[in-house]
Design a protein around this nucleic acid. Sequence first.
DNA 1: CGGCATCCGTCATGATACTG
DNA 2: CAGTATCATGACGGATGCCG
Lengths: 139, 139
Amino acid sequence: MTTEIVSLVTPGADACGRLPVEHGEFVRQILDRVGDKWSLLVIANLHDGPRRYTDLQQAVTGISQRMLTLTLRQLGEDGLIARTAYAEVPPRVEYALTPLGESFLQVATSLVQWASTHHGEIREHRALALARGGHGETS
Amino acid sequence: MTTEIVSLVTPGADACGRLPVEHGEFVRQILDRVGDKWSLLVIANLHDGPRRYTDLQQAVTGISQRMLTLTLRQLGEDGLIARTAYAEVPPRVEYALTPLGESFLQVATSLVQWASTHHGEIREHRALALARGGHGETS
DNA sequence: CGGCATCCGTCATGATACTG
DNA sequence: CAGTATCATGACGGATGCCG
C-alpha cells in the first residue's frame, strides 16, 4: 500500500552472505512497517502483555486515534499482534503480541539498544557537521 | 529536520530493562534514518568497502541523485559514513563506512535476517487478513 | 564526474467530528 | 470505550537543469 518495490538493488550484488541485499523487496516491506512513525512504539508498549485501545493511546502519548487504529490494523494484518474483543457492556478490546510479534520485538530491542548506545556519538557528529557546513562554510 | 519529537511515550513507562521506550526520542531519530527509503540500502552497499558516488547510484538501482546525495549527506552528518574527495583531474569521491556505521550495519543485518526468516509468515498473514476483511466482512 | 537547486506530485500524518 | 470518516497539510521523494 505504501510502496511498490521493483528491484531496489543491482541484481548482481549477491555472493556475500552478510547482507542479502537482493532480498530488498521484502526487507523494504518490513522496513516500511518498523520505519513508520508508530509501529515500533506500539509493539514496544505491548511487551508487557495485552493492552487496551485507550490504554495504548495514552501509552504512546502523541498518537492520534487514526494512527493508532491504522497501526494496530497493519500490525494485525501482518500477524505481529492479535486483537481480542470482549462482548461486554463497556466494550473492551485487547491487543497482544503474537509469537511472531515477540520475535520481532527482540530485533527491535537490539535496534533500540544500538540507538541507546550510540546516540551520543551521533549527536556529536551531527553537531560537528552542523558547526562546519551548517552556516559558515569552510572559508 | 524530518521530525520534532516531544515525548512519544508515557513518562512513567520505565521500570523494565527490556525496551527503554522512554528513550523514544533518539530511537525515533535512528528510526527515521533506517526507516527512510534509502539509508539502509546505501549502507548495505558499503559493507564491501569504499564506493564512489556513481558506483553507488548504480548499485542502489532506483535511487535518484537527489536522494543519493541527501542520504549520503545525512549519513555523513550522523557519522555513519565518511566522505573522501580526491583532487584528481576526473573528480573522484569515495564513501566508506565508519566504525560507527559498521556497528550499525550489524544491527541492520539482524533486521534483514529477521525479515528474511519471517517474510513468509507475514505474507501469509497479510493474504489471510485480506481474504477475510478485505471485501466481504465476517458474513 | 560529483553535486546542488528548484519545481512539483504524492501520500502519510494529524485534527476534527461522528458512530456503534 | 472503540473505531470510522473526512479534510487539510507538510514532509518525502522524483525529474529536470545548472555548476564546480
